[in-house]
Nucleic acid binder design. Structure first.
Length: 629
RNA sequence: GGACCUGUGGUGCAGCUAGGAGUGCACGCCGGCCUGUCAAGCCGGAGGUCGCGGGUUCAAAUCCCGUCAGGUCCGCCA
């Protein structure tokens, strides 16, 4: 079912023409725009035959579809009309006879009569039905994407995408930003995501790379005095695909000079709220702000879905003295799942398996039940005793717990009788991450539910702890430290906060940004903390560091993931649904067959020798003889 | 690199736990009937390498192994 946020076809009344533009060419009206007010008008329509309902040889109802919607045409000629034939229909708009209106159709009060039909293009039956009656296999949809795009869902999603991008652009223009394009053929920067390489024909053995983002280019624009830059930028990363990740994706990329973090956040907030406004009529709450520390503590993640509760409770203190070995750990986090005390043992086992997959040693569970001794006077006791004393915990782990420990657990989680408590003990990061993920899997509403909830996450740590205890940049190495923490750079780098911030929408990371370092001496200290020598730094980022010699303004910026933003505003759980021609999870395009082997001649011209041991080995080349040397 | 789910006429499913003839449902398709339908209706018909390969068995859509494709996730995504 379409969700509230979608720009549905044909439901906009008189707005139809404004949105669809003036019809021209072979037609003079759009199908979806016809209304009772058009009664008597001669019209010429073009489109696809969506459905034919035949009654005898001289009465057929033909539903004609174009991108604006559907209108019923009454046809009494014997033209051969089948599904997906492309036709031009000329006729007269008439009010439907009493009692035959179709309230499910925007054009349901009218029909086109006295139709002359011209078949512009015949069509084989499509390989899947284009109505919304059944989910169609993803591979089939992508193989015939040009047919999939005819469906209401894709029409609505792509038009919403256009509206959102337009709203973002208008917001940026209104705020004085200038769109500047940056190169797709860029240079390798050996940091961050795996890059797509493009071989150079003129310099055999050398490569361009496609940009993971225009990060360095936009900072150079700031050095160039552009002051306020934005771009709808294509970004390319050769990393494994997910529901929210494609090789290539679009970012609203922003950078501004002489600006504070608050300035950047205000600019981006304006843009994304404008985007939400064109997506639906719903009131969208202002963008909230949480510190990273607070988000990790309450939600166990740096991209919290704040549309629902079930926040993490800390049981570390409560169970410290319990003597239960499974719960003795630096950190114990729990969530309360309301009303789920009846969860079956096999379900609990599969949750435990899931917790292990996420890195936990195990999963503790407690069914919250009325305490036996108090069960009779529980009601009478209400209010006169501590909340916890009326409840007990049913769990193998709770069997030998002292009543005070049980009370502490109940109090810390706010448990009610009939709830299920789940807890993970372990290192702080593990306990938070596992419970944060289980919270999502057990309580998260569908992405389309309720108003969009944007939240800023601020005060990220400047460094993460690398595998060997060293500091690695949490954002990128040009991120400005929090001014209060600069003194800690040498003594305690892992506790230094940064002026980096993420924007999160309904639990999806929409993007991130930071205030950048623009002074060389501070940059050197950061490189030192990263154990990066001056020579290495020069080799990797030399051209940026060089640029900073010539007067770099203080600057900062942000990038918003447009595909994710549109998907959430469209109520889609997958960004493929808002991309016209996406790739499958294995990076293939079932329609074009990409990626494909190159002809030997093309490889030779690029100076490329393909190793036959790769995954392509064994696939027979196009021609006989192949390309074996 | 790894885990899990799915794969059955064109489409979506059921059948698989417990092996017994390609069995069933809905949609679509083809033909016929039908002058107010709108997911039209009624009648008839066609359409299958049960993803692919191997194994177990008298017998495999069903059990086992492998593989391919699609999906979800872990790793990865500064």
């Amino acid at each position: 079912m379409p969700t509230g946020g979608k720009a549905l076809t044909g439901d906009a009344g008189a707005a139809g023409e404004a949105r669809d533009g003036r019809p021209f060419g072979l037609r003079d009206h759009w199908c979806g725009e016809l209304r009772l007010a058009d009664e008597g008008a001669p019209v010429r329509l073009c489109g696809w035959v969506a459905r034919v309902r035949a009654h005898g040889s001289h009465l057929r109802f033909v539903d004609l579809r174009d991108r604006s919607g559907i209108v019923q045409c009454v046809v009494d000629t014997d033209a051969d009309l089948r599904s997906e034939y492309v036709v031009a229909i000329s006729g007269t708009v008439g009010a439907r006879p009493e009692g035959t209106s179709n309230p499910n159709l925007a054009t349901g009060d009218v029909e086109v009569r006295d139709c002359a039909v011209e078949v512009l293009s015949e069509a084989e039956p499509p390989p899947f039905q284009l109505d919304e009656r059944a989910e169609v296999d993803e591979a089939t949809r992508l193989r015939y994407r040009y047919l999939d795009l005819r469906r209401d869902r894709m029409v609505a999603n792509l038009r919403l995408r256009a509206s959102v991008m337009s709203a973002l652009r208008r917001s940026m223009e209104r705020q004085g930003f200038t769109e500047v394009e940056t190169p797709l053929l860029w240079t390798p920067t050996p940091e961050g995501a795996r890059e797509f390489a493009v071989p150079s024909r003129l310099h055999h053995g050398s490569f361009y790379v496609l940009p993971q983002s225009p990060q360095i280019a936009k900072q150079l624009l700031m050095v160039g005095g552009m002051d306020r830059y934005y771009q709808m930028a294509k970004c390319l990363r050769d990393e494994d695909l997910r529901a929210d990740r494609q090789f290539e994706f679009t970012q609203l990329d922003v950078e501004m000079s002489f600006a504070t973090q608050q300035d950047v956040m205000a600019v981006v907030s304006d843009a994304v709220l404008a985007a939400a406004a064109v997506a639906s009529d719903r009131e969208v709450p202002p963008v909230a702000t949480l510190t990273w520390q607070e988000s990790m503590e309450r939600y166990g993640t740096d991209k919290p879905d704040v549309r629902f509760g079930m926040e993490l409770a800390d049981l570390t203190g409560a169970v410290a003295a319990s003597g239960v070995a499974a719960l003795s750990a630096p950190c114990v986090k729990a969530i309360r799942v309301p009303g789920e005390a009846g969860t079956t043992r096999s379900r609990l086992d599969s949750l435990t398996a899931r917790a292990r997959q996420l890195g936990a040693k195990g999963l503790a569970w407690f069914r919250v039940v009325p305490a036996k001794a108090d069960s009779e006077d529980a009601g009478a006791a209400l209010g006169s005793r501590p909340l916890g004393s009326r409840l007990s915990l049913d769990s193998p782990l709770a069997r030998h717990m002292a009543p005070t420990v049980i009370d502490d657990i109940v109090t810390a989680t706010g448990a009610q009788a009939g709830d299920l408590l789940l807890a993970v003990a372990g290192p702080t990061a593990t306990a938070r991450a596992v419970m944060g993920q289980l919270r999502l899997e057990l309580g998260r509403p569908p992405l389309s539910e309720g108003a969009p909830r944007y939240v800023w996450i601020t005060d990220f740590p400047l460094f993460d702890e690398g595998p060997d205890g060293t500091a690695v940049p949490a954002h990128h190495p040009f991120t400005m430290p929090h001014p209060d923490d600069v003194v800690l750079l040498d003594s305690d780098p892992l506790s230094v906060r940064s002026q980096a911030y993420d924007l999160v929408l309904n639990g999806w990371e929409l993007g991130s940004g930071s205030i950048r370092i623009h002074r060389r001496e501070l940059q050197q200290r950061i490189f030192a903390a990263l154990k990066l020598s001056a020579e290495e730094a020069q080799a990797r980022f030399g051209f940026l560091l060089d640029a900073f010699r010539y007067g770099a303004p203080p600057h900062g910026g942000f990038a918003v993931g447009v595909d994710r933003l549109v998907a959430i505003l469209a109520g889609e759980e997958n960004i493929r649904e808002v991309i016209a021609f996406p790739k499958t999870q294995s990076g293939a395009d079932p329609m074009t067959g990409a990626p494909k082997e190159l002809a030997p001649g093309a490889l030779r011209e690029l100076g490329i020798l393909v190793g036959r041991a790769g995954p392509a080995a064994g696939r027979s080349p196009a021609g006989p003889g192949g390309s074996a040397p």
